[in-house]
Design a protein around this nucleic acid. Structure first.
Lengths: 338, 338
DNA sequence: ATACAAACTGAAAACGTTTTTTGCAAGTGG
DNA sequence: CCACTTGCAAAAAACGTTTTCAGTTTGTAT
C-alpha cells in the first residue's frame, strides 16, 4: 500500500477514469449503494490503490450537511470546560461528527462572532455552554437548527437544556459546614454577572437562613472565579479581624486561593478553618489537604449535551437524564473547634 | 435591522435578484472588488438588509482554501495542552483562521485518523503537538502542506519545529536541589515511551552525574504523568525505607501526587522533603506549599506555533524565536536539614 | 464623427461531490 | 414476437460561490 494520503488533487474523476467507469458509479461504490458485483470490486480496488478520499468540502456542499457541531464555551483552557469538552469529544467521535470549539471569554461580542462562524460554516448543530447571549437570540437559533443549551436558565428557549442545580449544590456545601458546627461561614462568590455565581450564593444564603443563622455582610465577598481574587479576599478578611471558622468558595480555584491565604496567615486547614469548594476539579483530590467540594460531573454533562445534539440532528427528541451534584467530603473540612 | 441571521438558504442569487444586478456583481461587492459606486452602495444596502452571509463551504469549494488549521494534541483537556491551545486560539483569531482541535490520547491510530480528518476537510495547515506519528509520515505531510511541529524531535522533517529544552530544564531543576544541599534525590518520570519523559530523566541523570552523585536504581521511578502514579510511587518509596530528601517529579501533576503521599506519611514539604515539578501549571502557584517548578511557556509555544503556521500559509518562512524554560522557585524546596 | 481604449457588468465555467434523470439491455408475460 | 417492466450505468443537474471571458457602455483622441 502506498503511503497514506500521499497525494491530493485526486478527484473522483481520476478514479473513474482509471477504473473505466463513470463518476456516478465511483460515487455509488464509495457510498455503498448498489452496483454490479464485478464493478464494485474493481472500483474498490482502484479506490484502495489510489488511496482516494472524497473531499469533505465538496460533500458538505452538495449534501447541505457538514458533520460538524459548533461548541461554544467561555474558555477552552479552563479546567471545568476542558473536562466537559472531553465528554463531548468522546461522544461525537463515535457518531462521526467533528466538534468545532470556540471560546468566548465572557465577551458578548466574541460570543456572537463565534456563533456567526458556526452559521457561516454551516455546522449541523450548536452547543452553547453558559454565555451572555440573549434568550431571544437563542430562540431564533433554536428555530433554525439543532441547539443544545448547557448551564443556562433558558427556560423560555425551546431547546434541550442541561442544568445542574447550582443552588442546591451550594446549599449542600453550606449545610455540610453547618452540620460540622460552623456558624461563622464566609462565602466568596464568583462574579455576580454570571448566573452560576449568583445561584450558588443564593444557595449559601438559603442554607444559612434555614438554619437560623444570620449572614454578616462582610461574610459575602465577590471574587472572579480565579485563585487570586479569593486569595486577596481572604487576606483582607483576616486582616480586618472578621470572625469566621469556615469558607465556602464559589469554585475550587477560589478555594485554593483562600487556602493559600490561610496558610500565609498561619491558619491551618482544616484545624483552624474549614474550606469547601465547588466543581471537583481533577486536581482537587490531590492538593494538601484534599479539598472537600461539590462534584460537578463535567464530563457527563458534555456527554449528555453531545448525545442531545446527535439526537436532534437525526430528528429525534433529546433524552435528558438529570445529573446530580454531589458533596465530596475530603480533608479540608472538620468539626469546628470549641 | 432584522434579527441577526434569522434566515438561511439565502444565497447570493437572492441578493442579486433583489438588488437587480448579477451575482457576479454581488460577489464583487462582498469581496471589495471594484464596482460602480452607485451599484456598490445599493448592493451593500441590500446585503445589510437581508443580513446576508456567504457560505463558507461554497467559498472553500471554489477557493480551494478553508481558512482552518488542524491542531493535533494528546489531550485537549490536559492543563498543559489547554494552555497551548489558548495561545493558538489567540493568534489565529486575529488572522481569520479557525483552529480545528483533535485529541489523540496517546494512541497512534487515533492520531492517524485525526490527520486524515484534517486532510479530508482540506485544512490549510496542520500543527502537530507531540505524538507518536512516524517522522516519514510527517515528512510526507510537510511536503504537501504547511506543517508545524511542536515538542518532537523531528530533526529529519523539513518543517518548522518548536522544541523546548526538556533535558536542560530537568537539569536545572535537579541542580537547584543539589545546590540546596540535597544528595538523595528521587526522580519520578513520565512514561518512557514519551520523548519528553526520557529527556527529563536524562537531564536528571546528567545533573546528578555532573555533580558526582550516584543515582540509586530505586530513585528512578516511572509514572504516567498523572497524580496517582506519583502518589503510589512515593508511598512505596517511603514504605520500602528508601532514603531520600528530595523528589524531582516529571511534571506538576505528579509533584502534587508525591506531595500528597508525603503528607499522608507525615512528612512535611519542604521541611522534611523538597519537591520540584515541571510545567508550572496555573494551579501550581496556589497549592500549599506553592510548588517550585520549571515553567514551560505553554501559551507562548502555542502562539509561536500559530504564527509559524500563518507564515507558512502565506508562503513566508516561519520565524522561530527560541523559548526558554525557567526555574520558578517557590516554597516546596529548601536547603536540606543537616 | 469615428475608431479605439478603458471601465464595468453579466453570462458562463469551474470547484468535487451526490442525486436525479435518461438511456440501454435484458428479462417477462401475453 | 412484441410490448412492457426491471435493473443498472452513464449523463446531466445541482449545491453556492469565485473567477474568467465576452460584451456593452462610456470616454478620449484623432
Amino acid at each position: 500500500m502506498t503511503s497514506v494520503g500521499s497525494e491530493r488533487n485526486l478527484t473522483i474523476r481520476d478514479v473513474a477514469q482509471r477504473a473505466g467507469v463513470s463518476i456516478s458509479t465511483v460515487s455509488r461504490v464509495i457510498n455503498g449503494k448498489k452496483v454490479r458485483d464485478e464493478l464494485q470490486v474493481n472500483v474498490q480496488r482502484v479506490l484502495d490503490e489510489m488511496n482516494f478520499r472524497p473531499s469533505a468540502v465538496a460533500r458538505s456542499m452538495v449534501r447541505g450537511r457538514t458533520q460538524t457541531v459548533g461548541v461554544l464555551v467561555e474558555d477552552i483552557s479552563s479546567s471545568y470546560y476542558a473536562e466537559m469538552i472531553k465528554g463531548i469529544e468522546r461522544i461525537l467521535e463515535r457518531t462521526g461528527h467533528h466538534p468545532l470549539f470556540k471560546s468566548s471569554h465572557w465577551n458578548l461580542q466574541l460570543e456572537e462572532e463565534a456563533l456567526q462562524v458556526f452559521l457561516d460554516h454551516n455546522v449541523d448543530a450548536i452547543v452553547v455552554v453558559g454565555g451572555l447571549i440573549s434568550e431571544s437570540r437563542l430562540q431564533d437559533l433554536a428555530a433554525r437548527m439543532p441547539l443544545v443549551l448547557v448551564g443556562r436558565g433558558g427556560v423560555s428557549v425551546n431547546a434541550p437544556t442541561i442544568n445542574l442545580d447550582q443552588r442546591g449544590g451550594a446549599y449542600g456545601a453550606t449545610r455540610h459546614l453547618i452540620e460540622l458546627g460552623h456558624r461563622q461561614i464566609v462565602h466568596i462568590s464568583g462574579p455576580l454577572t454570571q448566573e452560576d455565581a449568583v445561584a450558588r450564593r443564593v444557595g449559601y444564603q438559603d442554607a444559612m437562613h434555614d438554619h437560623g443563622l444570620e449572614v454578616r455582610p462582610d461574610w459575602l465577598c465577590e471574587g472572579d472565579f480565579l485563585e487570586t481574587s479569593a486569595f486577596r479576599a481572604t487576606m483582607h478578611l483576616i486582616e480586618n479581624g472578621t470572625p469566621f471558622t469556615a469558607i465556602f468558595a464559589g469554585n475550587d480555584q477560589m478555594a485554593l486561593g483562600a487556602n493559600l491565604a490561610l496558610h500565609r496567615k498561619g491558619l491551618r486547614v482544616p484545624d483552624d478553618v474549614s474550606v469547601v469548594g465547588f466543581d471537583d476539579l481533577p486536581v482537587s483530590a490531590y492538593v494538601v489537604p484534599p479539598l472537600t467540594t461539590i462534584r460537578q460531573p463535567a464530563q457527563q454533562v458534555g456527554e449528555l449535551a453531545a448525545h442531545a445534539a446527535v439526537a436532534l440532528m437525526s430528528g429525534e427528541p433529546a433524552q435528558l437524564a438529570p445529573l446530580e451534584l454531589k458533596l465530596i467530603v475530603r480533608e479540608s473540612t472538620r468539626a469546628v473547634r470549641r
